[in-house]
């Protein structure tokens, strides 16, 4: 069973449905005992970093999530959920992340010219950087769906794929049992479902 951590942000309907589509039981939960029982965790997130960070802290789940993940339980952060995994975030200020992956999150605009629109919205191709277990059923060049204005940087060692949008932007990361996707696997058609399929093989 996969637990989708419900800390009060975002709409988790599609995410839960995408697990059903691959035959995996997924539970949207804020119940610590369910998180403990789960084989793996999903950390979702949309909106502003500060709000999500605050919601996660105030949910009372953060400590337990960190404990479980440090104990080896696989976790995947998606979109803003991935950005939460890093040490620092510079979205309208400076905030501490969960520190599960070295690196920081900065505005895309710092890295690309003025001609490209922010946020990056749409389908873009994965360019592999390091092997990842979540790529088991997909291939380099496959398209996934992005919506983001910030990107993870200083995390090259842990970057498994980038995508080209004026510059190479971090698309996915992996550090042991911790995974992150800047894109939305639950909105990336069969490619996205295949990424989740590889993730749910992990225990």
């Amino acid at each position: 069973m996969t637990a989708i951590i419900d800390y009060g942000v975002g709409n988790l309907f599609s995410l839960k449905s995408s697990f059903s589509a691959i035959g995996e039981e997924a539970v949207i939960t804020k119940d610590i005992s369910v998180l403990e029982r789960a084989d793996r965790l999903i950390l979702p997130g949309v909106g502003a970093f500060r709000d999500a960070r605050k919601a996660l802290s105030e949910s009372g789940l953060e400590e337990k999530v960190l404990e479980l993940v440090k104990g080896g339980k696989p976790m995947m952060g998606i979109c803003l959920g991935m950005q939460l995994l890093f040490e620092k975030d510079y979205e309208d200020g400076e905030y501490d992340g969960l520190g599960l992956i070295p690196g920081e999150v900065r505005p895309i605009r710092e890295k690309i010219g003025d001609s490209l629109k922010i946020p990056q919205i749409g389908w873009n191709a994965l360019i592999y950087k390091n092997p990842s277990k979540i790529f088991k059923y997909i291939k380099e060049g496959d398209f996934v769906y992005f919506v983001h204005s910030y990107h993870a940087t200083g995390c090259e060692t842990y970057t498994t794929a980038v995508t080209e949008y004026g510059a190479n932007l971090t698309a996915s990361v992996e550090n042991g049992n911790v995974f992150g996707c800047q894109f939305h696997p639950e909105k990336s058609g069969d490619v996205g479902l295949n990424i989740l399929r590889a993730f749910v093989e992990m225990k």
């Binding site: 709409n11 309907f13 599609s14 449905s17 059903s20 589509a21 909105k187 990336s188």
Partner: peptide, 27 residues
């Protein structure tokens, strides 16, 4: 939304923030 895994935009009859809530909850 439980069968199709690409982005879904909904329009028509959206007059209030509650209308946003209604359709976002449905995927």
């Amino acid at each position: 939304a439980s069968r199709v895994f690409i982005p879904l935009t909904v329009g028509g009859g959206i007059n209030t923030v509650d209308d946003f809530d209604r359709v976002l909850k449905c995927g």
